[in-house]
Design a protein around this nucleic acid. Structure first.
Length: 872
RNA sequence: GCCUCUGUAGCUCAGUGGAAGAGCAAUUCCGUCCUAAGGAAAUGGCCGGGGGUUCGAAUCCCUCCAGGGGCACCA
């Protein structure tokens, strides 16, 4: 607060006789910002597009923002952290591509436009302008020659191109299906955009199901590759994201088994991961909302049809949320039909129950209540038979016996021993064991039995090995205005005609005369001049597809467009992609763990298959930063805990805020703004800055004349910082800089003094390290130290190996594990020498006293431990 | 319920078999015309609990407790 006032007064009276003006020791962040920002604008140190540039390349990418209002604290954190990495690689001699753009299509713009009666373009581009200004002031080291906005026709033209390429390949298709409908935003959503509680990721509304014909991208064709290629990312992506993606794709391996159904010509196929338990199947369950269920009851007696109808209505009334809650009692209805178990000819009653999902597997399961908890719950609820076919108490070869001989002998059985009767315990037997009651499978282990039964089913033609997935195709149609028009024309006969490539882009019509109010159908359908076109094939009247694309299409390939965002002849240049891509380091929030990252991985593989890129994963490494909270919860205006970035920047300065973001903790942890102190950051920066002010030597001074102890500290610092940055331990790096600043301050005030070469050497290291976090302060220090800008391109110094080893080391002498003496010894001392010194130590002799020495452990040069026992 | 990560100074975190650390905050002192800045010093710890391995454990093993995250009727 005070600092802010001081800074402003100073601005106002900058040509007066302000006493701060004469006090060069005063750190004035506002003046420093004002001084260096224009210099950087002039020098453009972060341009990356010079073809003559011989430096090796790195591509460091921050997830691009959505332009909703000005930048907020979350942006400030993300861009501060991404910038540390970009600046680090430049110091290490790399030509770093660090671009920025805007993900500027989407509903917030449209909704804001409706509310204020303006064009979404106006709202969007005004916000972009504001964010751009804020980012420049924030000194993020972006290459400003490569900016893109996805809402520019020059960008979304290539979305349309990509769509058409996928359409040609059969990867974009239309189908009629049950879809997720957001009743607030009045549009359909992809499965990925529905949260686990059944609400919309964007609007928060409870999503309902609607039957509609929509456009899909065939991501399921890539399910195996999307899953298997995650292994390549192990170690360079957060394991949390990898596991979320694995769960989302949800591959299950098992078998399809065909069951005859009495009175039905076609067999019913079920998917199971436990074909080994086929002999334990005692009933079959079909999803009540499946076509199969409807067909199975169609010829049934009226009372069966009635009870099924009632049940179906009950299921459809119960909300998604109800359906999602685990542990709800099992419900269902008998269909009065029977299936025949292909392995033993048994008649299995067929039930409909909502614990079986219509859109997973085949919408039908074989129920093995003894070995599946859900089936068991159902069997117990409806008094259906239960047959154990795996003896889980029988040890399998190589497995640990459940009961040891001693336990049998003493009668002390462990209480966690698995009992054998699921019917009385209510617990299904899911574990390993030996097959029983299973004919030829008896005695086999689970693994062998699965193999054996699949072979048998295949030879008999009643089943086969199978895989199934949780992931569904990506629904990309949206019934809203502010997005990429789908480049398809519908002929009068219902045919689909791709817009010829030379007619791209299909530009959005102006909003004049259009009602953007969401009403369940795309507003574009009402733009008569736009939607009515001549069929490109024969000139007959035709209509454009009125829907727009999911904005996640836009962001699934934008990292390639950055390679030349102004190229109007192609989406991107494969040669440039070869040079820069894939992205070496991607930085963004974990909220995109599935959505954006999965889609971008998918599209990259598509582009690989189409021959446009030579890699199959877009982002070689990923850093997820945490969120910025206030008082333990996410900031929001309605909660009244909103911290305004602009106010923080005015009060503490850009550098202090960036430093605070980096210092608050490990990058992936959340930051609670109530726990951190930007004022302390500012104080530290002032302290660091004064170091440079105090240095009185000149840049050409001979390092070798410097104080040895401080030089050692500085070179250890130079040696350890790169590893810490590459491990993303930015908070530790900041702490190390603080240590070096403290040591250097001491050297100036009560050591070798400000003129010593080691003080200059240390000050330069501090300036270079601060460039990662506090670029304005670093630049000003650099200038004070006698160098021209930009400090951002100064190369990190290599430490001298001979300054990294100490010439003496403190060896600890312990007696029975307690420290009794410390000896200054050479790092090269031998074990025998060290032991002799330890035994000679007066305090050791005193501690040992008359006790007998039984063992001496020597680890030269660090420690000697003398173990004793009482002599008598 | 399953999987996973984390428990070290008041706070945020280093330390992964060999002396318990850093920064920040708090405290005291010095200093300044005032305020803010600045300098110095000292304080602060059953390393979540218990058990084990070891000459030696914050570190390895077992177990319990607490917190975070992910998944959860997916056959």
């Amino acid at each position: 607060m005070n600092e802010r006032h001081v800074a402003h007064e100073r601005d106002a009276a900058s040509d007066g006789d302000n006493r701060f003006e004469n006090d060069e020791r005063h750190y004035d962040f506002a003046a420093i910002q004002d001084k260096w920002l224009p210099v950087w604008d002039e020098l453009k140190p972060f341009r990356s597009g010079d073809p003559a540039d011989k430096r090796p390349r790195k591509y460091v990418l921050d997830m691009f923002p959505y332009p909703s209002g000005d930048l907020h604290m979350g942006h400030a954190e993300a861009y501060a952290l991404g910038d540390v990495i970009a600046r680090y690689w430049r110091q290490q001699g790399f030509n770093v591509l660090h671009p920025i753009g805007w993900d500027s299509f989407g509903l917030p713009a449209e909704n804001a436009a409706i509310k204020r009666g303006i064009d979404p373009r106006e709202w969007t581009y005004d916000n972009i302008e504001q964010q751009r200004t804020s980012m420049r002031r924030y000194a993020a080291s972006f290459d400003w020659d490569r900016v893109l906005h996805t809402s520019d026709p020059e960008y979304y033209k290539w979305n349309q191109w990509l769509f058409l390429k996928m359409y040609e390949k059969g990867l974009a298709y239309r189908k009629d299906s049950w879809v997720n409908w957001d009743p607030v935003d009045q549009t359909v959503l992809a499965n990925e955009q529905v949260l686990p509680d059944g609400t919309s990721e964007r609007s928060g509304a409870l999503v309902v199901k609607k039957k509609l014909t929509q456009w899909y991208l065939k991501i399921t064709d890539y399910a195996d590759r999307l899953l298997d290629d995650l292994n390549q990312l192990e170690g360079s992506w957060p394991s949390k994201v990898l596991s979320m993606q694995r769960n989302w794709i949800g591959r299950s391996i098992g078998a399809d088994v065909d069951f005859e159904v009495e009175g039905r010509a076609e067999k019913v196929t079920v998917f199971t991961t436990r074909p080994d338990t086929l002999h334990g199947a005692t009933f079959m369950v079909v999803a009540p909302d499946s076509e199969l269920a409807a067909e199975l009851v169609s010829g049934a007696a009226p009372d069966v049809r009635t009870s099924f109808q009632e049940y179906l209505e009950f299921v459809q009334k119960s909300s998604e949320i109800d359906r999602m809650t685990a542990d709800r009692p099992k419900t269902g209805v008998f269909l009065n039909r029977y299936a025949i178990n292909p392995v033993n000819g048994e008649r299995l009653p067929i039930w409909a129950a909502d614990y079986v999902l219509a859109d997973y597997g085949h919408g039908a399961v074989m129920a093995v209540p003894a070995h599946d908890q859900r089936d068991l719950d159902f069997a117990l609820a409806f008094d259906l038979p239960i047959r154990v076919v795996v003896d889980t108490n029988a040890p399998v070869t190589g497995a640990i016996p459940v009961i040891t001989a001693e336990q049998l002998e003493s009668g002390e059985l462990p209480d966690d021993i698995e009992p054998l009767d699921p019917k009385t315990t209510g617990v299904a037997l899911a574990g390993e064991g030996r097959m029983i009651n299973s004919g030829s499978l008896d005695g086999l282990s689970k693994r062998t039995a699965i193999q054996r039964i699949i072979e048998r089913l295949e030879s008999e033609g009643t089943g086969r090995a199978a895989k199934t997935y949780r992931i569904r195709d990506w629904l990309i149609s949206r019934q809203r205005y502010w997005g990429t028009p789908i480049p398809i024309i519908h002929g009068q006969d219902g045919s689909l005609i791709p817009v010829p490539e030379d007619q791209l882009p299909v530009v959005l019509p102006p909003t004049e005369g259009l009602d953007l109010q969401p009403k369940g159908q795309s507003p574009l359908g009402a733009a008569e001049d736009w939607v009515n076109v001549a069929n490109p094939l024969d000139g007959t009247p035709a209509r454009r597809d009125p829907d727009t694309m999911d904005t996640f299409v836009d962001s699934s390939w934008y990292f390639l467009r950055f390679l030349d965002p102004n190229d109007d002849t192609k989406a991107f240049d494969p040669a440039e992609a070869e040079k820069w891509a894939p992205v070496d380091q991607y930085v963004g929030g974990v909220t995109h763990a599935i959505l954006h990252l999965l889609y971008a991985r998918f599209i990259t593989k598509v582009l690989f298959d189409l021959g446009y890129v030579s890699f199959t994963e877009p982002f070689s490494a990923l850093l997820n930063q945490g969120m910025v909270l206030m008082d333990g919860s996410a900031m929001s205006k309605s909660k009244g805990n909103l911290v305004r970035l602009s106010e923080q920047l005015d009060e503490h300065g850009v550098d202090a805020i960036r430093l605070t973001m980096a210092f608050a903790g490990p990058p992936e942890d959340d930051i609670d703004w109530a726990d951190v102190s930007p004022a302390a950051s500012a104080k530290f920066l002032a302290r660091a800055w004064r170091i440079a002010q105090d240095v009185t030597s000149s840049p050409d001074i001979d390092w070798k004349t410097g104080d040895l102890s401080l030089r050692r500290t500085t070179h250890r610092f130079l040696a350890e910082i790169p590893g810490l940055v590459e491990a993303f331990k930015f908070n530790v790096v900041v702490a190390k800089i603080m240590e070096l600043v403290n040591v250097t301050r001491k050297a100036i005030d009560s050591g070798p003094g400000a003129a010593d070469a080691a003080v200059r050497e240390s000050a330069e290291a501090i300036a270079m390290a601060l460039n990662l976090f506090a670029p304005y302060t670093a630049e000003d220090m650099w200038s004070q130290l006698g160098y021209p800008p930009p400090v951002a391109l100064a190369q990190w110094r290599k430490p001298s190996p001979n300054l990294l080893v100490d010439d003496s080391i403190t060896a600890v002498v312990q007696v029975d594990g307690k420290v009794r003496d410390r000896l200054e010894v050479s790092p090269k001392i031998s074990g025998d020498e060290l032991e002799a010194l330890a035994r000679a130590s007066a305090s050791v002799i005193r501690s040992v006293g008359d006790r007998e020495i039984v063992n001496v452990i020597v680890r030269a040069p660090r420690i000697v431990n003398i173990a004793t026992r009482s002599a008598g």
